[in-house]
Design a protein around this nucleic acid. Sequence first.
RNA 1: CGGGGUGUAGCUCAGUCCGGUAGAGUGUCUGCUUUGGGAGCAGAAAGUCGCACGUUCGAAUCGUGUCACCCCGACCA
Length: 574
Amino acid sequence: MRTSQFFFTTLKEAPADAEVISQKLMLRAGLIKRAAAGIYTWMPLGLKVLRKVENIIREEMNRAGALELLMPAVQPAELWQESGRWEQYGPELLRFKDRHQRDFVIGPTHEEVITDVVRRDVKSYRQLPLHLYQIQTKFRDEIRPRFGVMRGREFLMKDGYSFHTSFEDLQREYANMYATYSRIFTRLGLRFRAVAADTGSIGGTGSHEFHVLADSGEDAIAFCPDSDYAANVELAEGVTPANPRANASQTLNKVPTPGKTACADVAELLGLPLTRTVKAIAIVNEEEARKRFSLLLLRGDHELNEIKASKVTGLSPFRFATESEIVEYLGCKPGYIGPVGVNAGKVRVVADRIVAAMSDFVCGANEEGFHLTGANFGRDLPEPEVADLRNVVAGDASPDGKGTLELCRGIEVGHIFQLRRKYAEALQCCYLDEQGKNQVMEMGCYGIGVTRIVGAAIEQGNDERGIVFPKAIAPFEVCIVPMGYFKSEAVKATTDRLYADLKSAGVDVVLDDRNERPGVMFADMELIGVPHRLVVGERGLAAGEIEYKSRTAAEPVMIAQDDVLAFVQTQLAA
RNA sequence: CGGGGUGUAGCUCAGUCCGGUAGAGUGUCUGCUUUGGGAGCAGAAAGUCGCACGUUCGAAUCGUGUCACCCCGACCA
């Protein structure tokens, strides 16, 4: 490709509302243009990158035995009504009517359609297992789209669905996909980690997420440097402390703490570490007109994990109590509430595992302006119900017992699920087994955020000059920047020959023939992240040499003219 | 959904408080010079001041409404 024939739309300055580095660089490099909130045009340059990502995914999926198909982006409401998600999904599902006033959605995901396809045409165990996937545009009407293509509303996704006659076969395919995903992200040149994950609203049993490691990531990951353990913080288990609870050594004492409603303020006032305090979070579970009020106890420095709390029997679905409900059940305003002296018949108390092992702790006194010190379970209040309720923090013991946890942040780019029979049952996706009996299929589903990968790769690869793309997905592999292309016959001749040679060797090369000043060409090629650069100039040619510089190297090197082709090929293969 | 902010040239932003002929930088175009790190000089084109209504002799500026975009929050005591 010659730059004069291409469409470059680089910018010196990024639009003011760009937040994260990948978004700024993608806009500056002219990879994408914003059309509306969370909706982007992929310019020719950006599309080249996107296609490279897509093709690696496609190659590896095909190699793993999956079959590509393409389902409609627009889906009839009937399928969603049948699965029940027409009601469940909420405003994130973009709905519209056609000219006949029939309801449709723009697909945020394709479980319904794929299950419909398979149930119509798969009738026998002989046709299974089957793994179908597509690379399709999805639309999710996010509350707050942000970070450019990282959380867009419209995005490209690879979604695959597998169908099996047994759970064992589903597990085999799940392992196959785990390996395939690892290969894909390795080929893409990303630093990533597979982590155990919550299955969320999609449901099912086993689940792993693949995260690209980056500080700007929206997810927190807990991992153990001394073992293979890694899990999303949403899921990572907070283990029961190894040491038993210490004996009570203090008496229960009510102390005035006017205006101190947060644990940190109370601890500071009393001159105690935050780890000696216990906070009580009031929640309400309302089902079929029966309201149940509960207090969740966490150590002052810990955070509630709502996903874990909602897994405690009888708590889900819950919401945080209103101020008036807190006054009604505890007789006290928020800020001073605690588990001591509550009416056990009306208020359920669930303590985090860490709290259950605490003694002589500080908590609210259920009286405005007062807290209690020296509180102890079994003496001042009943032994509580115990559950894992908190987000793990760095330094916690690893659940596999092999060291302590560390935390990092990640961008979720892949997610694999063992769906089991949830959708197959709802949509009656069945087959006849060897005995001629009707059986419900076992399903797996496997997603990769194709668009998001481009953003994630840039979050991981950038410097003050712009994007540093991994070689597998850079818009071009090599650029040739001539010095005096329109002035020097020698430079032009050498440049054209080099360009032709690289092209016929199958290299994705770009020749900057824009007649711009050198600084402009260098800056643009660095901004868009081309990994290898060749500079042809009269200086070098006089010595029979051409300059080569890697995007990541500090200094260029001079290569003998005759060796350049071989040298570049070696660099590309590295 | 609640709160806050911003809409002026392709991009970044002044001008709005205090009403009086639309500004800068950058980019774009033309010419000359320059040519190994976003050049210099000269000239030019380019804006329904988000939109509508209102107040006024006169509105980018004041008022009302509306749309778009951005940020924060949505109960962690």
